[in-house]
Design a binder for these strands. Structure first.
Length: 134
DNA sequence: ATGCTGACTATGT
DNA sequence: TACATAGCCAGCA
């Protein structure tokens, strides 16, 4: 847990373009800002797009450092199982995330899961879900 | 400097 | 479907 609210804020990642320098967190935030409204993506995907392939965990840590009112759409990031990791976490932010997603039209199944096939963010540079996408 | 922990994921039982 | 394990990173005691 990051634990230092003033150190790892979001800031920097402001641009929606390519972030070649800066900390890993900055690159992570930059990627998440590209996720369109009404879509969701996973920690692992964000990690890869940020050039941190295989470091899904780091993405989660980066998001935990965000503060209320951040311009980063953190709620659009869910785990590979299509569930909200926050629900399982201590923080009660799970409800907030759920609310924000529903407000964008993202449907959460009765089991508390989201269909990545339907709401998953599709990146142009083809990568995942090549076929049978829907 | 060493150890622990946490918004993850893939794999095996 | 649920639980256990092992990688992997960064920040703090």
């Amino acid at each position: 847990m990051p634990a230092d609210p003033r150190a790892s804020i979001e800031t920097t990642a402001g641009r929606s373009g390519t972030v070649t320098a800066g900390s890993s967190y900055d690159r992570i935030y930059a990627v998440i800002r590209k996720v369109p409204r009404g879509r969701v993506t996973t920690y692992g995907t964000v990690a890869r797009l940020a050039g941190l392939d295989g470091q899904a965990r780091l993405v989660g840590y980066a998001l935990s450092a965000l503060r209320t009112g951040t311009s980063v759409p953190w709620h659009r990031v869910i785990n590979a199982q299509g569930r909200l990791s926050l629900e399982r976490a201590k923080s009660g932010a799970g409800l907030t995330q759920r609310m924000l997603l529903q407000r964008e039209g993202v449907v959460i199944n009765p089991a508390g899961r989201i269909s990545l096939v339907r709401f998953g963010w599709k990146v142009k540079s083809g990568k995942r879900q090549a076929a049978s996408a829907r």
